[in-house]
Amino acid sequence: MNHASDSLAHHEGNLDPVKAGMITFLASESAFFGTLIMVYLFNLGTAFEPEREPYTPGKMLDLPLALPGTICLLLSSVTVHYAAKMLAQKKDAAFRLLWLATITLGIVFLGGTAVEWRDMIHAGFNISTNLFGSSYFTLVGFHAAHVTVGIILLTLVLALSRRTRAIHRHEVFAEVVSWYWHFVDGVWVVVFSVVYVFGR
């Protein structure tokens, strides 16, 4: 995670340890989200009881409300991709602009989730209401927490770019953070399809 890694003798592996570390970390994160999604599907199949419950996926989930945030998040994947590309080409201003755009889009997504949740909670639907509430808020909540961490990481990269550039590791940090962001977006695509499209 630092330029000491250079002196710790990597020879046979061509992969940068920081990149390999992020790949392994994301693999373990997929196992985590995979479990939450499997649990959601398991509960969807057995126990959401649409006829008897007043709070069911069909009644609580609002596709038009969730769609704008989703589009923002997908868009942010594009901006972060080009930001990393600009950085590799040493176009600093373009990098900063696109990086900031990514952060903004992420915040807009979180804002969308917040509005959605506020409406639900006002309607008397929360994490302890029923099994659907437990499954929904846990899954979407953990995703939102990952988006939040992503925003913090993106901000850190921007804030530290002056210091880290001094040791030539800035590009690598920015790149792995962009991978993390892509991963979080990818997870949302799955969560969105499972929860809002397939599961309604």
Binding site: N2, A4, R163, A166, R169
Partner: peptide
């Protein structure tokens, strides 16, 4: 931690 990574004192 970040300080260690980004300054020469980390080595």
């Amino acid at each position: 931690w970040v300080g260690q990574l980004t300054s020469p004192e980390g080595q």
